[in-house]
Simulated scan of single mutants.
Amino acid sequence: MCEGNIIGQLKEGHACAFDLLYRTYYPVIEKFILANSGSRDDAKDIFQETLLIFSRNLAKEDFALTSSLKTYLYAISRNLWLKSLRDRKMESALISADQDFPDLSIHAQQEKESDEKLTHYMDGLIAKMPVHCQKIVHYVYYDNVPVEEIAERMGYSNTHTASNVKYKCLQQMKKVTGKR
């Protein structure tokens, strides 16, 4: 069980620290989103994106938490949800300017003789990532699951959300390796 400095444990990539974040702060975010025209699936998507943003910020050398962790995560989630509501409103009004998404799929082609090395290397990288990213990366690299099926398995409301989260998780993995 994670005890002590949760920020330090998060910086070190301890999975139990991310689990603790989810158990402690997800209910607050879910309550906010449900009270503001959202669903449980929306809350899950927003919280996962919040954790990705938080993880990215936490990795910065100059990161300093100037509020409580609860306030920080709530602010990120709130901003993401408000943006999502604005986007939905624009979408329902048939404004399509923001609907062009780049192809975010990444195809890993591996040769048979390097499969074992790559698998070992990937396992090490994946272990340093949040749990939801571990699942997504596993689906992409090990199971070759299409983004539509990832959206369904992870409970995302649509494939665009799944593509965005997949992209961010893969970007985070690149960051872990020091490659940009």
Rank of each mutant, 00 (worst) to 15 (best):
L52H: 03
E148C: 06
N57L: 09
I95Q: 12
M154G: 06
A35G: 10
S39H: 03
K112D: 15
I33Y: 00
T177I: 06
S105D: 15
I106W: 12
G4E: 04
K128A: 13
K135F: 08
Q109V: 05
S157M: 10
D87R: 06
D62N: 12
C169M: 06
V131E: 12
D100T: 06
Y22H: 12
G4C: 05
E113W: 08
T24G: 04
N79E: 11
E152S: 15
G155C: 06
R86H: 13
L51F: 04
S77F: 01
F18C: 02
C2P: 05
G38S: 05
T119M: 04
K112V: 11
L34S: 06
E111H: 08
H107F: 14
E61D: 13
S37M: 08
N57I: 00
N36V: 04
Y26Q: 06
K135D: 10
F47L: 06
Y121W: 15
L118E: 01
K175R: 15
R23T: 08
R86G: 11
N5H: 11
V137L: 13
I33G: 00
A127N: 10
Q172F: 14
T50S: 08
L85C: 12
L69W: 02
L104Y: 05
G4R: 03
Y72K: 02
L65P: 03
K89E: 15
Q109K: 10
M173N: 00
E152V: 11
S39P: 02
N5S: 13
Y139S: 00
K11T: 03
W81A: 03
M1C: 08
S68Y: 03
A64K: 13
Y142E: 05
I136F: 02
K174Q: 10
M90N: 13
K168E: 09
S96Y: 13
H120I: 11
H120S: 12
